[in-house]
């Protein structure tokens, strides 16, 4: 691909858009239901609110009595802080749930947009504190991994493009219906990471690419705009990109990953949850300063 313009080559197995989406969506919902039932959630009858603001998208999901309900997913950009509580209110009301009936809060803790992540975390922390219920955080790479086909037997990589040639990266493997991280999340340069990955399948997310342009602020979308370097584009294009069976890293993924984790250690303890930044707060360097 040429630098700075032209058509983006159609990525292999793109999950968004087109006719394919509807069938995949149905399939995804079936998998959700099956996965959650297997985890005993239905029996547990839990009421859960899931909040993900790690990108330009506000992604929410509600579960009532162990049954997944609505999961709005909307590009809000800079309007996130303004809209989040009215949207949560509408979601709960739509589900016929009062906030005080919630049993659990799930939150995506990053890595992602710093400010965006803090908005969802501030809400989730406060809900958990006021309602005196547990708060469980899930990292965004695990949510991306959960978009892939549980039938995938090979180990695979998850890469979230944050800026230019940099990606947040981790390795995963599906085991017992759970996408399990092997090792830890690291901030890597694709230049050195790509040769390590080789032909292995990669679940890739580039803000502002798969999701389209969000209105307002492009905090999270900006990195994609930065990665016009032809070498970087070539590296991304050469990856063996996986086709997600769940089209979006949305609140449903957060429910599907977080709720079973909660059941597995229901008695707690529940340590405070904070954002996962993985980048120094002083990532800009000033002349004459360390």
């Amino acid at each position: 691909m040429k630098a700075g313009g032209g058509e983006t080559p159609a990525p292999k197995g793109k999950g968004l858009g087109g006719e394919k989406l509807n069938t995949e969506k149905l399939k995804a919902e079936k998998l959700d239901a099956a996965g959650l039932k297997a985890a005993g959630l239905k029996a547990a009858g839990l009421n859960i609110l899931a909040v993900d603001t790690t990108s330009d998208f506000l992604s929410l999901a509600v579960m009532k009595g162990g049954v997944p309900g609505d999961a709005p997913y909307e590009a809000l950009g800079r309007r996130m802080a303004r809209e989040i509580l009215p949207r949560i209110d509408a979601l709960l009301k739509g589900a016929g749930l009062k906030a005080e009936e919630l049993d659990l809060l799930l939150v995506a803790r990053g890595p992602g947009s710093f400010t965006g992540t803090r908005i969802g975390m501030g809400v989730a922390q406060t809900f958990a504190q006021v309602l005196e219920i547990p708060l469980l955080g899930v990292d965004t790479l695990t949510l991306l991994a959960a978009q892939t086909d549980p039938g995938e037997s090979r180990p695979f990589h998850v890469a979230l493009n944050c800026a230019r040639d940099e990606v947040y990266h981790a390795r995963f493997r599906w085991k017992d219906g759970i996408a399990q991280m092997e090792g830890a999340i690291a901030l890597r340069r694709l230049e050195t990471l790509a040769p390590e990955i080789g032909d292995a399948p990669v679940m890739l997310r580039r803000f502002g690419k798969e999701d389209g342009r969000a209105p307002g602020n492009h905090t999270a979308a900006r990195p994609a705009a930065n990665s016009r370097d032809p070498d970087t584009e070539r590296r991304f294009a050469a990856l063996n990109e996986m086709s997600p069976v769940h089209p979006r890293p949305d609140g449903k993924r957060l429910l599907a990953v977080g709720a079973p984790r909660f059941l597995a250690r229901r008695e707690g303890p529940w340590p405070p949850v904070l954002p996962l930044y993985l980048k120094s707060e002083a990532f800009r360097t000033w002349k004459g300063r360390p």
Binding site: A81, I84, L85, I88, A99, I119, G122, V130
Partner: peptide
């Protein structure tokens, strides 16, 4: 600082909503 203001605002809004 906008990022700092948003932390206080998000928490305050959540309190206002829940209470």
């Amino acid at each position: 600082l906008m990022g700092s203001i948003l932390v206080g605002m998000t928490v305050a809004k959540s309190l206002s909503y829940l209470l």
